[in-house]
Simulated assay, not measured.
Amino acid sequence: MAKLTVLLLAAIAASISTASPLKRQTKCASPTVRVSWHDMAAADKKAYIAAEQCILKAPAKLNKMPGAVTRWDEFVSLHQIHALQIHSTGQFLPYHRYFLHVHEFLLAECGYKGAHPYWDETRDASKFTASPVFDPTTGFGGTGSGTGACVQNGPFKNMTVNIGPGFTTKPRCVNRQITDFLSSLTNKAAVTKALAPKTYEEAWISIYNGPHLGGHMALSMMNGDSITSPGDPLFMLHHGFVDKMWYDWQMQSPEKRLTEMGGPNAQDPAIGFLEFSGGVEQEAAMWGKPTAAMLAVTPNPHNGDPGNVTTLSHIMSSLGIIPDATVADVMDPAGQYLCYTYK
């Protein structure tokens, strides 16, 4: 009997190791409410920024991601390693929702107890530089300058990220280059257009090529590098905005859209990133290619899927920061796995 009990406990432990510790038996009863940075109290902004600084300075824990020195490096490396699976694919939206959840976990490690914020970029479209997001005291600091476009003020001045550019691992500053006229690509009309499609197959592309891409162009985080742009903590507010767009699209018809998935689960090498021409080989001239060490820890893009299409069973990984999750887990932000809504 004792031996049987030990075996049962081992089986339970094994099952827990492959599921999120936050997975509940029922839907969450009290979801947190994500609000735009504009509407956060100054004390909450400072607490969030302090946690971001903590992650940027904390030593790496996993010793798995090539080139990672800090906990933040591990997080950015996660995006780098998955880059060719999570851009221009159907899992673009669910993976980045999961990525935000990984970020929530890291924030909690550093003592942050509030909801994850987002940036309602429609409120600052055409005039990003005037946004409270870039306040040097209660924000992320402003635009960069000089050869490296390093941020010149605010909490991330003189901070170092060791992941990037592209598929390299070299120390560099947190940098961005804000262009106001490009920020018009995130206005209300652009968001309305992005959310107009009736099917997920159309909607993820519309959001991806619309305000998502427009915001990246206007901010040029980490030299506009699609592979390692999360090196700038501002990335998380921008992708909170992207996630809210998907949430708003889902809430237009939740009975259908909370379970609707599709699109390829890995890039077509002949196409590569939708926003660049020439396919993966030509794009490699910009960013290089994943190193052997990166490929050694890169998950199979078809994990959980029976073919080349992203399904609800698709498995998403953070390489050990938090347990793996499926696309189905993250479809409902206020479901059994996640627990938030947007305001």
Rank of each mutant, 00 (worst) to 15 (best):
Y200L: 00
Y200K: 12
E201I: 02
E202P: 00
A203H: 04
W204Q: 00
S206G: 05
I207V: 14
G210N: 00
G210K: 08
G210T: 13
G210P: 03
P211S: 09
L213Y: 14
L213V: 04
L213R: 14
G215K: 06
H216V: 06
H216R: 10
H216A: 13
A218S: 15
L219W: 10
S220T: 13
M221S: 13
D225Q: 12
S226H: 06
S226W: 13
I227S: 00
S229M: 09
S229L: 11
D232I: 08
D232T: 10
D232L: 04
P233W: 14
P233R: 08
F235S: 10
L237W: 06
H239W: 12
V242S: 04
V242N: 07
D243L: 04
D243Y: 13
M245F: 04
M245G: 03
Y247H: 09
Y247D: 12
D248S: 05
D248W: 10
W249A: 00
Q250V: 15
Q250W: 12
Q252D: 06
R257S: 01
T259S: 14
E260P: 08
E260Y: 07
G262W: 02
G262H: 06
G262E: 01
P264K: 10
P264V: 12
N265Q: 03
A266K: 10
P269W: 15
A270C: 08
I271H: 07
I271D: 05
F273E: 08
F273W: 00
E275A: 15
F276V: 00
G278E: 09
G279M: 02
G279P: 11
E281Q: 10
A284H: 07
A285S: 01
M286Q: 13
G288T: 02
G288P: 01
K289S: 12
T291W: 03
A292E: 15
A292N: 06
A293L: 03
M294S: 00
M294V: 07
T298R: 01
P299S: 10
N300H: 05
N300E: 09
N300P: 04
P301I: 11
H302Q: 13
N303K: 03
N303V: 01
G304S: 12
G304D: 03
G307R: 01
